[in-house]
Amino acid sequence: MNKLKHQSSKLIYKISPWIMLFPTIFVLYFMIWRPQIMGFVWSFHEMNGFQVGEFCGLKNYMEVLNEPAFLSVFVNTVEYVLWSMVIGFVLPIILAVMINELRRGKDFFKVTLYLPGIVPGIAVMVMWYFMFYPDATGLLNVLLAKIGVEPLEWLNDAKMTIPLIVITKTWRAAGGSALLYFTALQGIKTELYEAAIIDGASVVKRFFSITLPQISGLLVLNFVRQIIAVFQISEEPMTMTGGGPMGASMSLGYQIYRYGFISGRVGCALALSVLMFVMLVVATLFYFYLNKKVEENLE
């Protein structure tokens, strides 16, 4: 009897890690792995509402690719990424380098620049939507009126809408990214700078030959992370422009939502999801390639 008890407690001891791991595996399976795989499988099926129907090969994919707007939506998405490189990627680096140079007040600037990050995402989008409001009540038009400039169309201007959405995104995230870079900059050994000063390197030279290479790993990581994140942009256009004007701010991510939950073309939503996934896998592979290059350069 005692032996049996001993054996069973030994068994419990042996499988207890698996029991404790079960919740993690359960949620990852049902929330990430299964939807990912089933999304792929279902994209080859006829969808009746949210019910999976017959296998239909590449029909959904053809429908997505033959959509006249597909190319322009894709180009828009790339445009989002490019603008976010110009605005969103560079600005935090500049801020961090500048804060790092300060002799006093570092903490003040760090905290103040981080403040927009506290405002919830949806509030930021709507807030900027109203600041960009195209009539005389929008904050920015009020300011323009003060200096005697005619009100602008802001988000309703097809040329400006994507950069403005990127600015909104950057406004919220720049402080947080700047903090990251700042920590990395603080980690650079002072001896490196001292040696460079002894060698007579100018300030500009020190920046390009010490500062940038020392944080290049983080830069590459954030660069690729940002490409991947911005490529999936959907909530911002959904909230701020509804994809307009005339589809000028439509993105692939928002198109998935529209297919799935507005126009009821669930099959198309799934197919487009898979297409986007493939594009992002390519981007991730590119990251590994870049990362390897950077590491080789450092050695």
Binding site: P35, Q36, G253
Partner: peptide
């Protein structure tokens, strides 16, 4: 960690 999230929107809703 690497798997992007937007793609799961519709399958998740079906789940």
């Amino acid at each position: 960690m690497m798997v992007p999230g937007t793609m799961r929107l519709v399958p998740l809703y079906m789940t």
